[in-house]
């Protein structure tokens, strides 16, 4: 392959993986922005999303023979709804009572929720890899030098579409405005008559639904799902959120795409390769925290006490 062929191929891979990171990163960033919680359970919500998708997909397996995409879209929507509700439930049971508690307590709570989801799924699946059967064909075609499959193109388009919808939701609707307001000052919002709990719940719903979508997309992309699939992507999605500037939603998307691209190109660097790419992105997180903790889009403002 020539340099350009490799370059284009890695560019596409990077964008695709990066859009998964971005979708998960949005959830981290939104929750962090609104209640300043690093939601450890988010990675496991992503994983749960993939498994809920697996179940709904198998329910539709016989209904939509010959039209695989219709089944996938339908199960995607149902899973997003269910997992979104799971996110709200977690928020209600575990996080809401802790909002006024010391930060350490709520972090440990988040860790406990994460362990609970993770181990439940591990137990239910007996730690097995589960095939994610979609019924899609894997015929590839070429666009210039770029080798693509229908699946991958649709996934990338869908991920970007979801991000655009989210952006419109945040900037154009009342709920989005309330979210941004709460992230600035929760107490004042309460005084202004904003139902803070409701908005926080919506935030969890949206973040979890997007993570579920990413989980299903990852299932479609890789062909298998596993209870452990959330761990690394959780770490990377958090890295993406930090790169973009935590709490800033377009930043999470940008950070995700950037990290995806970096990782994809890093596999071409001698010594890094595919074995070390995960370590590489962790090093990248440390470097960002060291030199630009506010992220690319974050502004270094005077911290208020």
């Amino acid at each position: 392959m020539t340099f350009w062929e490799i370059f284009l191929q890695q560019l596409f891979n990077g964008l695709l993986i990066g859009s998964f990171y971005g979708l998960v990163a949005i959830g981290y960033s939104m929750v962090y922005g609104i209640i300043k919680l690093l939601n450890f359970a988010h990675a496991d919500i992503y994983m749960s999303g993939a498994f809920v998708g697996l179940i709904t997909l198998s329910l539709f397996a016989n209904t939509f023979v010959g039209n695989a995409w219709l089944g996938i879209v339908l199960s995607l929507l149902i899973s997003m709804l269910l997992v979104g509700m799971l996110g709200v439930l977690i928020q209600r049971v575990a996080y809401r009572p802790m909002l006024k508690a010391p930060r350490l307590s709520i972090l440990i709570t988040a860790l406990a929720v994460s362990m609970l989801l993770y181990n439940t799924v591990m137990l239910l699946t007996q730690g097995q890899y589960k095939p994610f059967r979609t019924g899609l064909t894997h015929d590839s075609f070429f666009v210039g030098p770029l080798r693509l499959t229908e699946t991958r193109v649709v996934l990338l388009v869908a991920a970007i579409a979801l991000m655009i919808i989210l952006h419109l939701f945040i900037t154009r609707t009342m709920y989005g405005k309330a979210m941004r307001a709460i992230s600035l000052d929760r107490d004042t919002c309460q005084l202004m008559g904003i139902n803070v709990f409701q908005i926080v719940a919506i935030t969890f719903f949206v973040g979890s639904a997007l993570a579920a979508a990413a989980g299903i997309m990852a299932g479609v992309y890789y062909g298998t799902v596993h209870f452990y699939m959330g761990f690394l992507i959780g770490l990377k999605a958090f890295t993406s959120a930090v790169i973009g500037g935590i709490g800033i939603i377009p930043g999470a998307m940008l950070g995700g795409l950037l990290l995806g691209l970096l990782e994809s190109f890093s596999t071409q660097i001698p010594f890094v390769g595919t074995v070390w790419k995960d370590v590489f992105s962790f090093v990248f997180l440390i470097l960002f925290l060291l030199f630009r903790p506010t992220g690319i889009l974050g502004r270094a403002e005077s911290e208020r006490m």
Binding site: A94, P97, M98, A101, S105, I106, I108, T109, L111, A112, V113, M115, L116, N119, T120, L123
Partner: peptide
């Protein structure tokens, strides 16, 4: 079930 129990204990303790 050990780990699930640990997780639940942690959660209940924190709450």
């Amino acid at each position: 079930y050990r780990l699930i129990i640990f997780a639940l204990v942690l959660l209940v303790l924190m709450l």
